[in-house]
């Protein structure tokens, strides 16, 4: 066991996908209307994180950056963590972000809301269990997810960070014998 607790996080920038196995920290900095979409496979202890910007691609340009769009990020995450569609129901999902930072817009595209709705629908379509959501509202968010402990830490401006222990929901903890 490493004594270096402050390991470097694997941060997914806009549109990027990052994958970690068994240990490591995955996260996103400064999510506004974007949504950090993390899928975890309890069987292989593998997690994939996409920094989703928009609900769907508007043409066929998505192949360069599939993590940018909800509808292309989720199937790409499955492939990256080595799970096929029929196995997807064993996955656990975390969604963080999707805020509307600009208040009182007269014409708004509601991208944060539409990102969240699209991703929630995709989770239902793939039968993936959503175990943690910190979405919508008017705040930007940063988060880190520690794969070895199952703890997710969410930061918002002007608020103390919140920590959520998800080990049990992730299937990281074996039930006591």
């Amino acid at each position: 066991m490493s004594l270096l607790s402050a390991r470097a996080s694997l941060l997914a920038g806009m549109g990027e996908i990052k994958v970690a196995r068994k240990e490591g920290v995955l996260g996103c900095i400064g999510l506004g209307s974007c949504v950090g979409t993390l899928l975890y496979d309890p069987q292989t202890h593998t997690a994939g994180l996409a920094h989703v910007m928009l609900p769907e691609p508007h043409d066929n340009d998505w192949s360069l950056m599939p993590g940018k769009y909800a509808t292309t990020a989720v199937p790409t995450l499955l492939r990256e963590i080595g799970v096929n569609t029929s196995q997807a129901s064993r996955l656990r999902a975390l969604l963080i972000g999707g805020g509307e930072l600009f208040q009182n817009r007269s014409q708004t595209l509601k991208i944060g809301e539409r990102n969240v709705e699209t991703l929630q629908q995709l989770m239902r379509d793939y039968r993936i269990t959503l175990i943690f959501e910190d979405v919508r509202g008017s705040s930007g968010r940063s988060f880190e997810f520690d794969l070895s402990t199952g703890v997710v830490r969410v930061r918002k401006v002007g608020q103390p960070p919140t920590e959520h222990a998800l080990a049990y929901a992730l299937g990281l903890m074996r039930p006591a014998v």
Partner: peptide
């Protein structure tokens, strides 16, 4: 249109502006 206001993390504000403009 009248300006809409935000005060937040730089990255969150900039990325929200980008996605609005990038849409479509």
């Amino acid at each position: 249109e009248p300006p809409a206001f935000a005060a937040d993390m730089a990255m969150a504000v900039v990325s929200s502006i980008m996605t609005e403009a990038l849409y479509g």
